[in-house]
Simulated scan of single mutants.
Amino acid sequence: MYETEANPTYQQIARSIEFLTDNFQQQPSLADVADQANLSEYHFQRLFSDWAGVSPKKFLQYLTLDFAKERLRNGLTLAEAADEAGLSGTGRLHDLFVVLEGVTPGQFKQAGEGLTIRYAVFESPFGPYLLGTIGDKIVKLEFLDEAEPTDQISIANRFAAEWPEAVLVPDAQALRPLADSIFTDADRQPLRVLVKASPFQLKVWEALLRIPEGQVVSYDQIAAAIGMPLASRAVGTAIGSNPVGYLIPCHRVIRKTGLFGNYRWGATRKTALLGWEAAHSLK
């Protein structure tokens, strides 16, 4: 019913990232990090470079807290950061390929009644994830831990908060082309995302789309960007309720102290996403 593939790569890399995050101040050797993945130095170097596109040593540079603090100390606004990234070279704004739409009041009231959600579980560079669509619009992208159940009842519970009345249809074959396009830099048509959200949530999520890949901002900066500088706590709540991971890049928001902070799909995965994007944006 669900499509998953045995993919030990992310789990091996995740163990390495956890070790690097805990020990970055000691600048561990390649042998120390390779040991966390139960691989030889040669195989770990090759696996990591294939996954991240850069060497473990270079990747480590972007996993330290200085990576986050440097950007915050610059005091850039979201608009300035986007302008600095530009459209030349490898810099890419997330909202160039993600179109965010809010449901209409009528659709909100119907809670999905009369709608069909097609869904499946796929593998990503960051472990398995649940993908759900209504027509050509993505309504759900949730990362899963390896041990999380993917039976029909568990999947239904994941859609219940936003779309309790929708009909759920497993359809990995139909969704495979879309899934293959999400975590790639290849040219593609914009991905359309449909969300049920309050006007405030929609403002916050739209602000997230303006954060360039490889950059991070604080909750305070998001609050200022939407014209509500005193609403950083409410911003945090809105970010935490994001139903579409990665495409609505809530992983790019950190605490103003420079700490990465929490992430609904795990701190290690957030660190992996940030490091992966930082490395790719500078390739």
Rank of each mutant, 00 (worst) to 15 (best):
F183T: 08
S16G: 02
L87V: 12
K270N: 05
F143Y: 14
R15A: 08
K109E: 10
M228N: 03
Q27F: 06
W265E: 09
T237D: 12
D145Q: 08
E101C: 01
D95H: 14
Y42I: 11
Q201G: 05
A224G: 01
S181I: 05
K283A: 11
L168Q: 11
T9Y: 03
I13V: 13
A234V: 04
G245Y: 04
G266M: 03
V169K: 09
K109W: 06
G214T: 13
F122T: 09
V54G: 02
A14N: 08
L39N: 07
D136V: 05
G102T: 15
G227D: 05
A174N: 14
S55G: 10
A161M: 03
F260G: 07
R71A: 13
G102K: 14
S40C: 00
L87Q: 15
S29I: 03
D32W: 00
L47I: 09
E277D: 14
T21C: 00
D180K: 12
R118E: 15
L274N: 13
L191H: 05
E84H: 06
R46W: 04
P125K: 14
D151L: 06
E165H: 00
F59H: 07
L191Y: 05
D50T: 11
A272F: 06
D32Q: 13
A82R: 12
F19D: 12
I17N: 05
V217W: 06
G86L: 07
I117W: 03
S124M: 08
E165V: 00
G266Y: 01
V195M: 08
Q221N: 13
E70G: 09
A82M: 02
A160E: 15
L144M: 06
L230F: 03
F44K: 05
P56V: 10
K137R: 15
T104S: 14
V216S: 07
A156W: 04
